[in-house]
Nucleic acid binder design. Structure first.
Lengths: 254, 254
DNA sequence: GCACGATATATTTTCGAAAGAAAGATGATT
DNA sequence: AATCATCTTTCTTTCGAAAATATATCGTGC
């Protein structure tokens, strides 16, 4: 957003061609710089670019993202309310710490929220809801296979996370509660850090069949067996956290 | 609360979890101007000084609070993530709208959260927990009586709200989940607006005995009858929302 | 009169500097 | 050498102005 006397080729205010050259949009489709800062910061935190407890000095962020203080501060405040960063007054921001207790609190809260949302979805779910779940699981499986076939880049990992979130989102899509959906999304992001190899170590893929667990959940949901679907979903999340806990304790202390 | 074997019955103003424990401070005990702006804005929104949907022009707020844009913006961002204000990019902030649907979503979500938290508290609750509940209900009753005796000022209403919140906080204090407690507090604030006379009209006090409902909940909790306590709590919240819904529909047509 | 386009105004968003506070360094005193 | 106060440095927070954008106003052509 050329600001300081940089040459700016802009034809009046009617630049209708502004439409979609988003391919190289420096702001990634964000309307404001604060929004862009929020997205990039969140990404960098959940992918481990910024480690837990690391202080987020504004000068550093300013250089890294090429922004001023205002949009950064705005983004950091949003992230604080999402528990990804913490702040002490007059002492700045830092990446939220991780701990086994926090992980389990997030996990159990997530189970509470999503199981209720899933129950409601199963009650209200229509054909579109079913189709959405089937589609999301299919796309997830494709991405899992692509990764298993050797695609280990950061982009592939992000795509995998997105597909995974989409599947869980599809399950609860018909719960008809803005709050449950938003909380589910937020808790997903919160738990994302605990699945990072840098934190949890590389959990042996052989120790479980995630794809099978997903399929079981889907089938119970589509068959409208609420209790079974909810139990499977809770077990699915608890299994992940149990494995992560073991990896954290054996791996790096603290 | 007493975590490491400290024997400490916290009562009254020494309570570590009072909603509003601040002296007469120029900034209301806030370390930063942004924090002060946050508190004042939130207060003005939940007490109806700013009506639902009202645009929150920065210039207006700047004059009203004597602050600059930066701390205001920070406060507004925090309030946005708490659903008290909404924002459209480049179009500024406004007070979040109210609707019967939103009220019920907040109510049912609150029931989900607090019933789970209450169950856990009942399981883990110790002597301090019981004492905290008894103390909070007593303080609430005192304030209710003071108000019934004719104290109708804004300060008295705020004090009543604080005591009410403290009681419900005390019930779930031992749930041992930071997230459940924070969500409970947030949902309390969200539902506060729906209890305003300006919005819901003056609900006839004779139509229910709130003090009795509170006492029933407390007695079931102290007697460790989880199912009963949870059912009473849920009914308590649903009753409030049902009355508000009726008042909203008959009163002003949105 | 009415749609349309250009200009003017209002408002938000962003910037960079200045003020304010905490952490760290220096030095004098015991 | 240790303690404390003071100075420096570093960093956060706040400000007011400038830039970018949206909204309202006005005039023009049909």
């Amino acid at each position: 957003m050329s600001r300081n006397g940089e040459i700016q080729v802009r034809v009046g205010r009617n630049g209708a061609q502004r439409a979609d050259d988003e391919a190289q949009d420096p702001q990634g489709g964000a309307a404001t710089l604060a929004e862009a800062a929020y997205r990039r910061l969140r990404q960098d935190i959940v992918t481990g670019v910024f480690a837990p407890n690391q202080p987020l000095r504004l000068e550093l962020l300013r250089q890294r993202y090429g922004l001023s203080f205002s949009p950064l501060r705005e983004a950091l405040n949003r992230l604080q309310s999402e528990r990804l960063v913490v702040t002490a007054p007059l002492r700045g921001f830092s990446v939220a710490p991780v701990s086994i207790e926090e992980m389990w609190d997030a996990t159990e809260t997530r189970i509470l929220i999503e199981c209720e949302a899933l129950r409601r979805s199963i009650t209200r779910g229509d054909d579109d809801w079913e189709a959405g779940i089937v589609a999301a699981l299919h796309a997830l499986d494709l991405q899992v296979r692509r990764r298993a076939a050797g695609a280990l880049g950061a982009d592939e990992l992000i795509a995998l996370e997105t597909r995974h979130q989409d599947f869980h989102r599809a399950l609860i899509a018909q719960c008809r509660s803005r709050r449950l959906i938003d909380l589910s999304n937020q808790l997903y992001v919160e738990t994302q850090r605990y699945r990072l190899p840098t934190l949890a170590g590389q959990i042996p893929a052989a120790s479980r069949d995630v794809a099978f667990e997903h399929r079981e959940i889907m089938e119970a949901a589509l068959a409208r067996r609420s209790d079974e679907a909810v139990a499977l979903l809770a077990a699915h999340y608890r299994r992940t956290s149990t494995l992560t806990e073991a990896a954290m304790q054996s791996g790096a202390a603290k």
